[in-house]
Design a protein around this nucleic acid. Structure first.
Lengths: 167, 167
DNA sequence: GACGGATAGTTGAATGCTCAACAAAGACGA
DNA sequence: TCGTCTTTGTTGAGCATTCAACTATCCGTC
């Protein structure tokens, strides 16, 4: 944001009523802390997984979601929802995971538009191998730093921010 | 993570003592909610800025930090710290911002290794033009969804997670 | 049925980021 | 002054993600 003089406020823009509700200093601090925290967590996990398991965090999430699904199978659209990724991103990701032999694509039995992503045995093994290091990294990045109340708070806050996950 | 049977636990890995402390279900829920929230916030802001201002969020942060610095000038290494980005990422980003005429590079007066990033007038204008829409997006993504206590909680939690920002 | 719009998924080009390698300069002890 | 180690920053290759088409299929309506 611009300087504390709030230069933007003076300028006519496309905003609804020409006036913007700037962040107060409490919000400002919370916002920047959140940005920093989110960035650091993301970077730490991506790094760890890339180094130790040869995959980015996004790919790990794909494998993880598939591993918990019935028959280790999910429709692309559902998988996209679970991993918070666009259809395109998921499609590219699954293509890459297919090359590695960790995921296979099947046709949907009834809807011929649909594709099913299936976790292969090799994919399962890769996930199992990667999981301990990943969980350790998650602990180091988050849970080792928070007390139980804060964990509950984090969950409540995050669920408010996220677009209500379950319908 | 693998199934709730915790397949990874059985496997010998490089972990310290061969045993991994898995996440309990409270932690699991908090973790996934956080991931989802962080991803959605990131995506929403990136989208809004790309659409309305032609820059990714990371570039906006660079401009914002420079705008608050004395003489609108910062050393690359400091700027990297403030924007939570690697030296390489920042270098690429500043190169791009230079092409747009929003940032200029100067030599450091005493340390000849150092480079100074300077926000140009055009850069200031771009920031001022982008700020209202950005702040509105931040509100929509975060603060419109939280009450004041939660804002305070978010800050406290985020500061714990982030590697203590101030020395 | 046949049309029109929605839904599911893929593709390729463009862009940003990571990683590793590198260069250039400061810092410091012998 | 030399040699070495550290710090600062840049570069290019490779990879992931985004965006904008595009195809194929489904669904509802006439």
């Amino acid at each position: 944001m611009p300087n504390s003089d709030r230069a933007g406020q003076e300028v006519a823009t496309g905003e609804p009523a020409g006036c913007t509700r700037w962040l107060d200093s409490e919000e400002q601090r919370a916002w920047r802390a959140f940005l920093r925290a989110a960035a650091q967590v993301d970077e730490a996990l991506d790094r760890q997984l890339q180094r130790d398991a040869g995959m980015p965090h996004a790919y790990y999430q794909v494998l993880a979601m598939l591993s918990e699904a019935p028959d280790r199978t999910l429709r692309m659209s559902q998988l996209a929802g679970l991993t918070t990724s666009s259809a395109s991103r998921l499609s590219h990701a699954v293509a890459r995971l297919e090359e590695k032999g960790w995921v296979r694509r099947d046709r949907h039995p009834t809807d011929r538009r649909g594709a099913l992503a299936v976790l292969t045995d090799a994919g399962w093994d890769a996930l199992v191998a990667a999981a301990p290091g990943h969980v350790t990294a998650v602990r180091a990045a988050i849970f080792d730093r928070l007390d139980p109340e804060q964990v509950a708070g984090l969950r409540a806050i995050s669920e408010r921010i996220a677009d209500y996950p379950e319908s």
